[in-house]
């Protein structure tokens, strides 16, 4: 039977309460009909796509209570007084579990005029908006967690934001000291923006693995694609970085985000990539 549980704030011992039974909150998601992308903080998700995390039950941020069959008989009914403290809706639909984060803005506290036989004013209290698409779906059969936006699921699965890594101060400094970079004052490690720190965390791995020959070609490659966007030093061997925008292009270059289309020979930048094959 489909059930809806909720997680309630500030209840350490029994945070899960039963809300509804025999009800589906969301349309059933068919995992074969949607496209799934392994989570990558720099990926811009298509509207119909979901980020996925494989082997969810082995992850640190897995919720132990999801083990086995969630037994609603173990959960007490939600009392009216606790309604405002709901932090998450958990809809058990078949074998899969759908999650929605509940924030203060999910509650409606507006006056509504309803017209039945005659119009009357309704003071709506204690109502939660159920979104048309859940924030996260746990496909139990294949042990996969699907979600769209990591910031909206980070309160549902505490610790999931570790996937969203930003380069540390030391990593940023080390990168900006690379042999192919020349900083122009006042731009320094403290002026690197959040999105660039995120990209930097990903680029670091690529850079470690990059063979020396390719590293030397890097300057040529980036220069080739964005003459205007980056400035080179007088000897033409290093990038002069004075803005965040320039750093972004260098980072894109290291990830080989620049390419030329095969037939029309157009130079392009991929701001989001997905490995295929």
């Amino acid at each position: 039977m489909d059930q809806v549980l909720v997680r309630v704030k500030r209840l350490r011992k029994t945070p899960y309460k039963k809300l509804l039974s025999d009800t589906k909150l969301y349309q059933t998601l068919d995992p074969t009909a949607v496209s799934m992308v392994r989570y990558n903080p720099d990926h811009n998700l298509d509207e119909d796509a979901w980020f996925k995390i494989d082997k969810f039950s082995e992850q640190e941020f897995y919720i132990g209570e999801l083990n086995g069959d969630l037994d609603t008989k173990d959960c007490d009914d939600l009392s009216k007084g606790k309604f405002r403290d709901i932090s998450c809706l958990i809809s058990i639909q078949g074998k899969d579990i759908y999650f929605q984060k509940v924030t203060p803005s999910s509650f409606i506290t507006r006056k509504i005029i309803q017209f039945g036989e005659a119009a009357h004013l309704e003071e709506s209290a204690n109502r939660i908006i159920v979104k048309s698409v859940p924030d996260a779906v746990f496909i139990k059969g294949s042990d996969v967690l699907l979600f769209k936006d990591i910031s909206s699921v980070s309160s549902i699965f505490p610790g999931i934001d570790q996937l969203y890594k930003e380069a540390t101060e030391a990593e940023v400094k080390a990168f900006l000291n690379s042999e192919f970079i020349q900083l122009v004052k006042p731009y320094d490690h403290s002026s690197v923006s959040k999105p660039n720190r995120k990209r930097l965390a990903l680029v670091n791995d690529t850079l470690q693995a990059m063979p020396a020959a390719q590293r030397e070609n890097l300057v040529e490659y980036i220069k080739d694609y964005c003459k205007e966007a980056v400035t080179l030093t007088a000897d033409g061997e290093r990038f002069e970085l004075s803005t965040d925008q320039q750093l972004k292009f260098v980072l894109y270059g290291i990830e080989e985000r620049f390419y030329t289309t095969m037939h029309s020979q157009e130079k392009r930048l991929a701001n989001s990539v997905q490995a295929i094959g």
């Binding site: 039977m1 059930q3 039963k18 509804l20 039974s21 069959d69 037994d71 609603t72 008989k73 009914d77």
Partner: peptide, 10 residues
């Protein structure tokens, strides 16, 4: 009243 289920093996 609200519904619950007793599944096999529970």
């Amino acid at each position: 009243l609200g519904k619950d289920e007793f599944k096999e093996g529970e």
